[in-house]
Design a binder for these strands. Structure first.
Lengths: 194, 194
DNA sequence: GACGGCCATCCTACCAGAAGGTAGACAAAG
DNA sequence: CTTTGTCTACCTTCTGGTAGGATGGCCGTC
């Protein structure tokens, strides 16, 4: 009943946290081997090459992200509350330092030196996140629940950029609170004022 | 009269563009040697270690940035116009692909794996940029030239984060225009409306 | 003006360790 | 008796870095 081969999951989880810390070139098979308690060669059994490893890692990350958005659609009806949940998710991740950066955001910064296959996955995440944010904002505006200053699409891009920038600032300042300090007003601005 | 040893400048310029492309671990002495047309060992004459190279590179970048802000203070009096110039500078850099990312923003994303000395310089840039933005916004608000929705400090952090996030999005989408699409409305929002 | 020393620059050659990756043996499970 | 997962051992290339020798400009001295 338990997952078959939790080892490969361990490898993915470990690689993910190493990527979040230092990007594609910031870790090696040896690093993973040390943490997971396995030999380098054994990792190659699960993921023949580093590109395989990172590609499936990002693919899985994307699945989780899509699932998260879908879940938010089901669980939360109010658009503003959906955005709050999204920002809140990251605020919690950053606060407890469990995963203080979006894997795809970090990899995107290194796009020019990324293997093409990984780059494609990363770009796809940006498109899907942006599409979801656009739909949320569009719906909020249409139902008079959100106050937009420009098109939903433009507002979504700005929202996404600000969230990513806030992650960066939190890391640069070494202060998790800065994330909330930036995203809080971002959400307030979307709120309908009487 | 000409600069003494333009070679070391060439090395710094080359390293800068390589860092902008792939971060600290995204380039090697061999890469620089190839581009500059010099042997690996010769680079060590100018910069004994990679840490030396990157530290002085970032230090110089910071000097240029500070000089740029000081210059903006002298040349442009209107706060909104100063911000527009700042954003416009990056918009141009991204559009012509000459330096499509802030060195410090890129390095900040890898802070956990950065040598401590480099990390210090990177953090210092964030503080000085944020301080300048804060002062511009504060002055603009005080003189009734800008419309702020919260404190100058908070607004400055949000501004900086959005600009950095816009760089990331432009890279992720492979589309320079997205930078202007995000920063344009950001500036508009600060404008006084009658 | 010639001479020798100094020093900055660049070179070839080399090194140790880390990188990603391969080959093949072994054990356990089905 | 094959499949799955792990291991040891090894390979090649890259990595940052070192040692020491050539070159050549600049200096003060004779």
């Amino acid at each position: 009943m338990s997952n078959l081969s939790t080892t490969s999951d361990d490898i993915l989880a470990c690689a993910r946290s190493l990527i979040v810390a230092g990007g594609y070139n910031g870790f090696s098979y040896a690093d993973i081997a040390d943490v997971v308690g396995i030999r380098k060669a054994s990792i190659h059994h699960h993921f023949p090459s580093k590109v395989d490893l990172v590609r499936t890692l990002v693919a899985r990350y994307r699945e989780e992200a899509e699932a998260g958005m879908a879940n938010l659609e089901l669980q939360v009806s109010d658009p503003l509350e959906q955005l709050r949940s999204y920002a809140g998710y990251w605020e919690a991740c950053i606060a407890d330092a469990s995963a203080p950066f979006c894997v795809c955001a970090l990899l995107a910064s290194q796009l020019p030196v990324l293997p093409a296959e990984v780059g494609l996955e990363v770009r796809a995440h940006f498109r899907s996140l942006s599409a979801w944010l656009t739909s949320v904002l569009e719906r909020g505006a249409r139902h008079g629940q959100l106050q937009l200053m420009s098109t939903p699409r433009a507002e979504a891009e700005a929202f996404m950029a600000t969230v990513h920038g806030a992650m960066l600032s939190a890391r640069a300042y070494g202060d998790p609170k800065i994330f909330g300090a930036v995203t809080g007003p971002l959400l307030e601005r979307l709120q309908i004022r009487s």
